[in-house]
Amino acid sequence: GTPVLLAPQIQSGAIRGLAVTSPVRTALLPDVPTVQEAGIKGYDVRTWAGLLAPKGTPPAIVAALNAATRDALRDPDLKQRLETAVGGEVRGSSPEEMKALIETEITKWTGVVEKAKIPKI
């Protein structure tokens, strides 16, 4: 589960948080160590979300959507509300950064699937 979903249960003592999977502790669970702190070096598994457009969307529209999104995320109140809702950092990026993130994730998880010999369906 994500920190935003599990924090109330951990804080109430119903369950015990062993570690968070991001490379840094989360503000929602500051006393729960990271997997790296628990001894597994290089561990970094995070959820992320992005605003995507259909293939072939004109570059001018992509640029306008990106600019509007980044402008909206400069609003401190909106940023705080989003970060509280998702339990993590909310930030804008460029279309190129988003593409690079997606490519990195595909490569990482393809390697995991292959190494674990998970059958493709």
Rank of each mutant, 00 (worst) to 15 (best):
G1N: 15
G1H: 13
T2V: 08
T2G: 13
P3W: 05
P3H: 09
V4Y: 04
V4W: 03
L6H: 06
P8Y: 14
Q9G: 09
Q11Y: 13
S12N: 11
G13P: 02
G17Y: 06
A19P: 06
V20I: 00
V20F: 10
S22W: 15
S22P: 13
P23Y: 02
P23T: 00
V24Q: 01
V24M: 01
R25Y: 04
T26G: 02
T26H: 01
T26F: 03
L28C: 08
L29N: 12
P30K: 05
P30W: 02
D31G: 08
V32H: 11
V32P: 11
V32T: 09
P33L: 07
T34E: 10
T34W: 13
V35T: 03
Q36S: 07
Q36I: 06
Q36V: 02
Q36A: 14
Q36G: 14
E37M: 04
E37R: 00
E37P: 07
E37L: 04
E37D: 15
G39I: 06
I40H: 14
I40A: 11
I40T: 11
K41G: 15
G42H: 07
D44T: 00
D44P: 11
D44N: 14
R46A: 04
T47C: 06
T47Q: 10
W48L: 15
W48E: 15
W48H: 12
A49I: 09
G50D: 05
L51E: 06
A53I: 15
A53R: 06
P54K: 03
P54L: 11
P54N: 04
K55E: 00
P59L: 01
P59G: 10
A60C: 08
A60D: 07
A60N: 10
A63F: 03
A64H: 15
A64G: 12
A64K: 06
L65W: 03
L65D: 01
L65K: 10
N66H: 07
N66G: 09
A67H: 11
T69S: 15
T69P: 09
R70Q: 14
R70V: 11
A72R: 12
A72Y: 08
A72H: 15
L73M: 05
L73C: 13
L73I: 00
L73D: 00
D75F: 01
D77Y: 04
D77V: 08
L78E: 07
K79Y: 10
K79S: 00
K79M: 09
R81N: 12
R81G: 11
L82W: 04
E83K: 02
G87S: 06
G88H: 02
E89L: 11
G92A: 01
S93G: 15
S93F: 02
E96K: 07
M98I: 15
K99R: 02
L101F: 12
L101C: 05
E103H: 04
I106F: 02
I106W: 00
T107Q: 12
T107M: 13
T107P: 04
K108A: 09
K108L: 01
K108N: 09
W109T: 14
T110M: 08
G111T: 09
V113H: 14
A116W: 03
K117Y: 11
I118K: 00
I118W: 13
I121Y: 10
